[in-house]
């Protein structure tokens, strides 16, 4: 009896292997317009649309999962999902641990936002914990005020807890636009990071090549630029 069950299980397994592997795409779901949860409760945003298109071009079945930003890399490493598309800038530190595809978003400018144009940028600066912006603030000599989510960094500026917030400019633009003048950009943009790429395990070279090729093809036919314009406005940096 036991043997029969085992063979049945083995058959089920081999049958499973034949069908296409699902590629699980990890994201944070709290960083519009890169990725966010829409009213329907689904992952939405620039990266969702881009990722779906990349999967279509690479002929992969993809599924979106959300994960806390804090543990997004350890969970990739232990295989709970296969890629990270979460507005993650390519940095040397991260590159040592995981692999990145070529950037699908040009090197970003980060910017300071405050409630008044003469805010003190060496004062208290809010940033999300574990981001390149937080690392940058720590180096500038300003007082770094860290929050676990991007939302809370904006709130800190609104309620005066911080003088300014440093974050990706594209994340800040819609917020500043909708604030009716309450929030303004301050100082010059700060170039940080080497663009945003898709993170993968270093051992997953085959998957990385597929996505690299797909990104390249979207760059070549201009569809990536279209997407960038759609989500980040006409003034955004293009490839």
């Amino acid at each position: 009896m036991k043997k029969i069950v085992l063979t049945a299980a083995a058959l089920a397994l081999t049958a499973g292997m034949a069908s296409a592997q699902t590629v699980r795409m990890g994201t944070e779901g709290a960083y519009p317009p890169y990725n966010f949860i829409n009213d329907k409760g689904e992952v939405d945003g620039f990266e969702r649309e881009l990722g779906d298109e990349l999967c279509r071009r690479a002929e992969l079945t993809c599924e979106w999962v959300t994960n806390d930003w804090d543990s997004i890399i350890p969970n990739l490493l232990s295989g709970n999902y296969d890629t990270i598309m979460a507005g993650m800038s390519i940095t040397p530190e991260r590159d040592e641990v995981i692999d990145f595809t070529q950037p699908y978003y040009p090197p970003t400018a980060s910017a300071y936002v405050a409630t008044s144009p003469d805010a003190d940028l060496t004062g208290v600066i809010a940033a999300q914990t574990g981001t390149i912006q937080a690392a940058h603030v720590a180096e500038t000599g300003a007082t770094l005020l860290e929050f676990p989510t991007p939302d809370e960094t904006i709130n800190a500026v609104r309620n005066g807890e911080a003088d300014a917030v440093l974050a990706d400019k594209d994340f800040l633009v819609p917020i500043v636009e909708e604030s009716n003048g309450e929030l303004v950009f301050v100082g010059d943009d700060v170039p940080l990071g080497g663009g945003i790429g898709m993170g993968l395990r270093e051992s997953d070279t085959e998957l990385k090549e597929k996505f690299d090729a797909a990104i390249q093809s979207m760059k070549d036919d201009g569809s990536l630029n279209e997407l960038l314009k759609k989500w980040f406005g006409d003034d955004t940096t293009l490839f």
Binding site: L13, M17, I98, E202, S203
Partner: peptide, 16 residues
Amino acid sequence: GNDFVVCPEAKLPLGT
């Protein structure tokens, strides 16, 4: 290195 890779049959749950 940093990666934790088991054979696809051992993944929990299976990739499919």
